[in-house]
């Protein structure tokens, strides 16, 4: 029971990441009909927003180390600490949450430029060409990041206050031995909040209504006299923001390197397919479902029966879903069929 509970928790934060990325991908898929292979790169860009902010905040100068008395020693002290003392220190500590603030405008801009500059020209092209051009873009973004930040993962720790583990077991009356890192718990809740915000935006605002109408029938919405293309640019920006935020928050879980997006890209496509192409609730549900399935598959008890199942479970599920229920768990029929 306890093991199951722990695996469930383990699955939730991974599932949260999958759900957020897949949500962004589905927004682009479902509304714009574009197969975006550069989506993983957006995730990567998001996490490197956090890395850049960390770099900027912890810019430092050499200061004489007073604690060492018998020879001249120097240590690196961040400017912020020199200027603001403890407040500056706290600012550096809170890099990742702060990065959320700068990520939103940055990713909005990235999404806008990407859609206006490139994706827009590919609405009428074949899916194969969309895949190829966005794949090329992903390589370019990835290599630029690699050229600037290097190829090694860059640790971006969470604030000290949440760096420990929560005694989750005790909360639910289970064994006290069940502990779970605070940050992952936060990640899961954050994912939930973002998903909720996106759904609220689409369901409750006029803009969201127009976008949903555009998803259902683009042409008619255009005929009513709404400039749907402009709205879609915003949707693309929104998708980029959601994905970028997922990336920022994931940095304390997994130190980002330039390749992090590619790893998530394949998975997020699989998640979208399982959830149903063009279905937002499907993408979220499938994200959590696959995250949890994957973490159960990596239990030793299961691995001893089916060795290696943890490596392939997600793909296996995708293959089975595509064959028995081609439109995915919650998808409409006929989306993205040719």
């Amino acid at each position: 029971m306890e093991a199951v509970f722990l695996q469930l928790l383990n699955g939730l934060d991974k599932g949260g990441a999958y759900a957020l990325i897949a949500l962004g991908l589905t927004l682009i898929f479902g509304t714009l009909g574009v197969v975006n292979f550069a989506h993983g790169a957006l995730f990567m860009l998001g996490s490197f927003c956090a890395v850049s902010l960390q770099k900027v905040l912890s810019m430092s100068m050499k200061v004489r180390d007073e604690s060492v008395t018998f020879f001249e020693a120097y240590k690196e002290v961040p400017y912020l600490e020199i200027w603001f003392g403890d407040a500056g220190k706290a600012l550096i500590d809170w890099t990742v949450p702060l990065a959320l603030l700068i990520t939103i405008p940055i990713m909005l801009g990235v999404g806008y430029v990407m859609e206006r500059g490139l994706i827009q020209r590919f609405y009428k092209r074949t899916h194969a060409e969309q895949i190829l051009v966005t794949f090329g873009l992903a390589i370019v973004l990835q290599e630029l990041v690699k050229a600037y930040f290097g190829a090694n993962p860059i640790p971006t720790p969470a604030p000290d206050i949440v760096s420990g583990s929560a005694h989750v077991g005790a909360w639910f009356g289970l064994s006290d031995a069940i502990v779970y890192p605070w940050w992952r718990l936060i990640y899961f809740l954050f994912a939930f909040a973002v998903v909720g915000a996106v759904f609220a935006f689409l369901q409750l605002t006029t803009f969201g209504m127009v976008v949903r109408a555009g998803m259902a029938d683009r042409e008619t919405v255009g005929l009513i006299g709404i400039d749907i293309d402009k709205k879609f640019t915003t949707v693309f920006g929104l998708a980029a923001v959601v994905t970028g935020l997922a990336g920022v928050m994931y940095t304390p879980v997994l130190p980002p390197d330039y390749h992090i997006g590619m790893e998530f890209l394949v998975l997020s496509f699989v998640v979208v397919v399982v959830g149903g192409m063009g279905s937002l609730p499907g993408a979220v549900a499938a994200g959590f479902l696959l995250g949890i399935l994957q973490s159960f598959a990596s239990m030793t008890e299961i691995k001893s029966i089916l060795p290696g199942i943890d490596q392939i479970i997600i793909y296996l599920v995708a293959v089975i879903i595509l064959l028995v229920r081609p439109r995915g768990l919650l998808g409409r029929e006929g989306v993205m069929e040719d």
Partner: peptide, 9 residues
Amino acid sequence: RSGIYFSIL
């Protein structure tokens, strides 16, 4: 399957 589904499979 065909199209994008084939690619993903």
